[in-house]
Design a protein around this nucleic acid. Structure first.
Lengths: 217, 217
DNA sequence: CGGAAACTTGATCGAATTCAAATAAGGTGG
DNA sequence: CCACCTTATTTGAATTCGATCAAGTTTCCG
C-alpha cells in the first residue's frame, strides 16, 4: 500500500493482511458488476479500468499504476462498476474489507488517505470527461502523456523526462476515445515534430514546453 | 437534505443547521478552486457543475437536481474542483462542515448515505465519459434524456413520461460535448421521429422503447 | 414594444473514422 | 534458434459526423 493518496506506510502498527493475486498481461483481473469482498491495490504492473458501456464499444476510464487502488469506492462497498484488465503482468494485493475497515477506524491517517485517493480518482475521471468532450485528438494524447508523466514522477518512476510505458496504441485509443489508426497518426506527428520519442516501450518527452502548450492546462 | 443517496431524513435527532443561499438563473453559485467551508446541497432548482478546462471551452460534468450534493468530496475536503452555475433560480442549503461531520460521526446512516451519494456521483461522471468517448450525438442526447428521467422519477418529479426540463439547448450542448447548433438538429430529428416532445420547458418521452434502444444501455 | 437571447435551417468545411493493404513486432511450438 | 502465426503499427484514400459559418425566425423579458 505504497501510494494510496500519495502517502506511504499508512497503516499503524497493525497492517491488514492481504492475498497476492497475479494476472498475465491482457487478462481480465476483475469483471464489472462482480461482488468483491476485498480491496484490491495494484502492487506492480499497469492495468486498465474499462466501463461497461452496454454496447460493444469500450471506454477505458482509468489507467491504474503501481500503488493505485483499483476503485476507491470498493473500500466502502463491494460492487465494482468497471472491468479491470491487466496491461502488463500485474500483481495485485487484495485486502479483506472487514480487516481493512477496522484499520481505517483505528487509523485516521489511513482514512484520510483513502478519501484523498477517492478525490483524486474523481478528479481524474472528470478531467478525462473534459478531454473527451472538448479536446482534439492531439490534445487528448498530449494530456494523457503529461498526466502519466506526472503520476509516475510521484512514484519515482521517471528518469530524464523518460518513463517505461507498456501501453499499446490501442490502449491509448481506448482511453482517449479515438481509433488505434488515428492514434498512430497523431503519435507519428508528435514524433516527427520532435515533441516525443516512443520506442521499445519507453516514452521520452523531448520538448516538455511544447507538449504542455498543446495540453492547454 | 432530502435526496442524499436517495434516502430521506437522514439526520438523527440533531439536524445540523444550514444557511440558505439563493442564486438567480444563469448566475455563478460557486467558483472553481474556491475554498468552501460549507457543504452545499441544492434545495430547489437546477444547476450545472462545469469543469475548469484551462482553455476557454467549457465541459459540464454534472447536472445538479434538487436534493443533490453539489460535490460529495466537499463533505471531507474544502476544495471545489468545478464551477457551479444556476440553470434556474436555485436555493442552496449550506451546512457548516464541522457540524455536518459531527452529525456524520454520530449517525452511521448519514455517513453511509454520503458514501452512496459519492459513489453515485462517481458513476455518473464515468458514464458521461463513456458517452463522450464512444457515443454519437443522438446517443449522447438520448442518454441524457433517459438519465434525467430516471433521476427525476426517483424524486417524484415525473408525470406520465413527462417532466419539467429547464435546460436550454446550450446547456445540453455543454454537457454532451456538442455545439448548440447540432443539439438543435438532433432534437429536431428526435421530435420529427416521434420519440420526444420538448416545448414550453416540458420534455415528454413519446416513445420510451425507441429512445432506450438508441441509448444502448 | 424593442432588444437580446435562443432556436432553426442550410451550405460548407474539417477532424477523425472507416476501409484497405502492406510492413513490423511478438510469441510459440518444434 | 528459427519458422510461423498472430497482434501491432504504418500509410493512404474515401467517407462521415459534427463543427463552423451565415441568415432568418422565434421566444423571452424588461
Amino acid at each position: 500500500l505504497k501510494n494510496v493518496g500519495g502517502a506511504r506506510d499508512n497503516f499503524g502498527g497493525a497492517a491488514p493482511r492481504y492475498i497476492e493475486q497475479t494476472s498475465a498481461a491482457r487478462r481480465k483481473i476483475f469483471q464489472s458488476d462482480q461482488r468483491i469482498d476485498s480491496i484490491p491495490i495494484i502492487a506492480s504492473g499497469w492495468a486498465a479500468a474499462i466501463a461497461n458501456s452496454g454496447h460493444d464499444r469500450r471506454q477505458t476510464i482509468a489507467l491504474l499504476l503501481p500503488g493505485d487502488l483499483v476503485s476507491s469506492a470498493l473500500v466502502f462497498d463491494d460492487k465494482l462498476n468497471v472491468t479491470v484488465e491487466a496491461i502488463t503482468d500485474v500483481c495485485c494485493h487484495n485486502y479483506a474489507r472487514a480487516e481493512f475497515r477496522a484499520a481505517l477506524a483505528a487509523n485516521p491517517n489511513l482514512f484520510e488517505a483513502v478519501l484523498r485517493s477517492w478525490a483524486e480518482e474523481s478528479l481524474q475521471v472528470a478531467q478525462l470527461a473534459v478531454s473527451l468532450g472538448q479536446c482534439t485528438a492531439e490534445e487528448r494524447i498530449a494530456r494523457l502523456i503529461v498526466n502519466l508523466f506526472e503520476r509516475l514522477a510521484k512514484r519515482g518512476m521517471v528518469e530524464n523526462d523518460a518513463f517505461d510505458c507498456p501501453l499499446r496504441q490501442w490502449h491509448i485509443a481506448e482511453y482517449t476515445g479515438l481509433t488505434a489508426v488515428h492514434v498512430s497518426k497523431v503519435l507519428g506527428q508528435l514524433r516527427r515534430d520532435g515533441l516525443i520519442d516512443f520506442k521499445d516501450r519507453v516514452l521520452t518527452i523531448l520538448n516538455p514546453v511544447a507538449l504542455r502548450r498543446i495540453c492547454n492546462i
